[in-house]
Simulated assay, not measured.
Amino acid sequence: MSTVSRDTEASRSRGEQHGIDLMQQPAVGLVYLFFVFLPLIFQPRVSVTTVIASLLACLAFLPLYRGGLGRWQPSAHARWTLTALIALLLLPLNPGANTFMIYAAGLAGHLLAPRRAVIIGLALAALTAAAYLWVFGNEPWAIGFVLITFVIGGMVLGGSIYGRLQSRRMAELQLSQDEVRRLAGQAERERIARDLHDLLGHTLSMVVLKSELAGKLIARDPDAARAQIAEVEQVARQALGEVREAVSGYRRGDFEGELAATRLALLSAGIEVEAASHAPPRRDEVDHLLSMCLREASTNILRHADAGHVSVDLSVKEGTLSLAISDDGRGGIRHEGNGLRGIRERLEAFGGDLDIDSPEGAGTRLRLSLPAGWRAEADAA
């Protein structure tokens, strides 16, 4: 259980986007400002006023897109409203002003509640259609711009809402994981307290009583006092052995617990996990070995693999215990780092072996094998 409380390395979220979320990567979202100037390329004559107005519109939009400028921090409604106003003011000079309407829809989806954002998106679409028809009439190209605004604006609005919901789900998942770790840590502390009470409570009480008795017997019966002191020593040595065994058990990893911790760490990083364990009971030392190797492999995946899916399979075939860990990341491992070298050395100490298959761009597969001596004593008997 203690392995569940380790720190998770979570730095990514990979939810599939059903749309375009311009705010997912703000710097990249600004690339779409190119479409403000795209219609001007196809016009035979473009006035200097139109170019200057378009540049000023972009400059005015930047602080709204980024969330403010200096001490000026506009509200959520002010950001999308002023962005839509920029589009309406620029529209008579530049038909590419519909780009700002699309940005306004994206900001509404990113900043407001989903239902309200959808209503505002529909209102912006209707306003865009009315503005184009009023400024340019029933020109086919104007209707085309309106349709583009409807389609792209809808995709951006949907992507923004979906991205916001995904972020909220990830935050809720993180909170639930923090609570699980807190409860796991609390349960672990309570278990340790019970174990220490069971191990030392009775023993220390006996040591105190026998020490007091020996102190009373020293003057009138030294032999009996020495016998009591010898019993105190024996009880103390027995308690010391029990404490050492308990501490060794705390330090030893449990593979099922480590597998749960690994699943938690990978899922919190947005990595899908498929895990299966079909092996019978194992020796404590072997279980600890597998736990350490799984922890090291999952750490490498989180840090270096850039994977989206991980498979963990513990199985037995022809008496050989095998742990296969596969990912669909970048692959291309040419040299073993400290982590993989440590896994290999641990396995070799138990007579096992590590096989690495890591083609470039096709993920990595680790196969850890222990040919003999891994079964638990009770299972072997």
Rank of each mutant, 00 (worst) to 15 (best):
L314W: 03
R303K: 15
V312F: 04
D306C: 03
L314Q: 11
H304I: 03
H309Q: 15
D306K: 13
M292S: 11
V310Y: 05
S291H: 04
V316E: 15
D306Q: 15
V312C: 05
L321Q: 09
M292Y: 03
S298P: 08
A297N: 07
L321D: 09
E285N: 15
R283Q: 15
N300M: 04
S298V: 08
M292A: 12
D284V: 04
E296D: 12
L321P: 06
L314P: 05
R283A: 15
E318S: 06
M292C: 13
H309L: 11
G308P: 01
L314F: 06
D287G: 09
A307E: 04
D306V: 01
R295T: 09
A305S: 13
I301M: 14
R282K: 13
V310M: 10
L321K: 12
H304Y: 15
E285C: 12
L289C: 11
K317D: 15
S298C: 13
L302D: 13
R283H: 15
L314H: 05
H309I: 02
K317G: 10
C293Q: 14
I301F: 06
D287P: 02
G308M: 02
A307F: 00
L321V: 02
E296H: 07
T299G: 09
H309M: 08
S315T: 11
L321N: 07
C293G: 13
L290M: 12
A297W: 03
A307K: 03
V310E: 11
R283Y: 09
E318W: 00
L314I: 06
S311W: 01
E296P: 02
L302G: 10
L290K: 06
L302S: 14
L321S: 10
V316T: 13
C293R: 13
E318H: 05
E318N: 11
V310Q: 11
V286W: 04
S298K: 10
L289G: 08
T320V: 12
H288R: 05
D284Y: 02
G319D: 14
D284W: 04
S315V: 01
H288K: 05
D306G: 10
R282Q: 12
A297F: 01
S291P: 07
L321E: 08
R303M: 12
G319F: 05
A297K: 06
L294I: 00
N300S: 11
D284M: 10
E296R: 09
S291V: 02
A307R: 03
D287V: 00
K317F: 06
V310C: 10
L302C: 13
S291Q: 08
T320L: 02
A305P: 04
